[in-house]
């Protein structure tokens, strides 16, 4: 449990660090990927609903804090997206590229679309088609590319933590 909390904290901090610094340098057409959405999808695919929801909440809250605007919107959206993914994750072939791409694309579009509706449209902005094609879709595609190299390393870390837990439980028994 202790290792799991440390690993989760490192994952969140590294996500925050890369999102606010490194990713700025790999922008294409002024669009950068959203690493925290990608990490949320990966964790939701690998872990139980409770752990996924908790991690999604923290990833979302981290993004809210980094943005420096209203706290809670990304946390809420990440939380709501992670639950259905984690509920069906055992029925999916998680290693299949198509599964990763579909879930990342769907999650990214849903999260950013809803964020736009909540934050911008309620203020009277009416640029939805423009924003959809120039921000939401390119970011979702970018996230799909980012998940491919990231899924395996994160899965390996979680498998390693599971192994440690199993060994400890066996020793305790």
């Amino acid at each position: 449990m202790k290792y799991r909390v440390i690993a989760a904290s490192i994952l969140i901090l590294m996500g925050a660090f890369f999102q606010s610094t490194v990713l700025e340098h790999i922008e294409i057409l002024n669009i950068r990927p959203n690493l925290l959405i990608v990490l949320m999808v990966i964790v939701s695919l690998l872990r139980s609903p409770v752990e996924s929801a908790a991690m999604a909440l923290l990833f979302g809250l981290t993004l809210d804090v980094l943005m420096g605007k209203t706290l809670g919107w990304y946390a809420l959206l990440f939380f709501l997206v992670s639950i259905p993914i984690s509920l069906i994750n055992e029925k999916l072939y998680r290693d299949k590229i198509l599964v990763l791409l579909t879930l990342t694309l769907g999650s990214s579009v849903f999260v950013e679309f809803m964020f736009f509706i909540i934050v911008f449209m309620f203020r009277g902005y009416e640029y939805l088609p423009f924003i959809f094609w120039t921000v939401i879709i390119p970011e979702a595609i970018y996230n799909c590319i980012l998940i491919l190299p990231l899924f395996k390393p994160v899965a390996t870390v979680y498998n390693f933590l599971d192994k440690i837990d199993r060994r400890r439980n066996r020793l305790a028994a």
Binding site: S20, E24, R32, L36, L63, L66, F120, E139
Partner: peptide, 14 residues
Amino acid sequence: IIAKDPGNWFEVFT
């Protein structure tokens, strides 16, 4: 400036 806006919506920096 030590960090730029993490998303694609705002123009905020740290």
